[in-house]
């Protein structure tokens, strides 16, 4: 009997945690997108007011924003400073590859991140501002969608996890 009860508790706990993780992913996505927007704002400040070279600007952003979003900038900057002849796009993509698992972003969000690689440092100040502003706008839309999904799915995921576990236990019993 004790075995059955502990098994049932374990199943319910496992499905609840699964549901909780799923809801946490929605929460995380919102946070990452907000951090990305903040990072782009910081980058624009560096460009506008001090014309900081890209690697230094990235390091400064990486130090102010925690991983994984800060890690994207920090890792890309480190690659740039290694003098291996890589392009900014290659460094950025490599940093995305290293951090993408922790970002909890959708494929569309990742495409936006990838597009940033084609922009970094490749135009004059005005061009850079315009291109970053465009990506910021798209990220804001993505953030809006992520917030709606988060509000809609957070409780559902948690309850579904719990109820799914209870249903499974009842079915097995």
């Amino acid at each position: 009997m004790y075995l059955k009860i502990s098994g049932a508790v374990l199943i319910i706990l496992a499905t609840y945690l699964y549901g909780h993780n799923l809801s946490f992913m929605y929460y995380n996505r919102v946070r990452r997108l907000e951090e990305l927007l903040m990072a782009l704002e910081m980058f624009l400040t560096e460009v506008n007011y001090s014309l900081t070279p890209l690697p230094q600007a990235f390091i400064s952003i990486g130090e102010k924003i925690s991983r994984p979003v800060g890690g994207l900038f920090f890792d890309a900057a480190k690659l740039m400073q290694q003098n291996r002849g890589l392009s900014a796009c290659e460094c950025w993509r490599s940093a995305i590859k290293k951090n993408y698992r922790d970002l909890d972003l959708t494929r569309n969000n990742m495409d936006l991140l990838d597009r940033l690689g084609l922009i970094w440092g490749r135009s004059d100040k005005n061009g850079q501002q315009r291109q970053i502003a465009l990506i910021q706008e798209l990220l804001r839309q993505a953030l809006g969608e992520a917030q709606v999904k988060h509000q809609k799915n957070e409780k559902i995921c948690k309850y579904l996890g719990l109820l799914g576990g209870i249903t499974l236990v009842l079915f097995l019993l």
Binding site: L51, L54, A57, M80, A88, G121, D124, K125, Q128
Partner: peptide, 10 residues
């Protein structure tokens, strides 16, 4: 790109 330190704007 390398000469400009990846920063044409600068």
């Amino acid at each position: 790109e390398l000469i400009c330190s990846y920063s044409l704007y600068a």
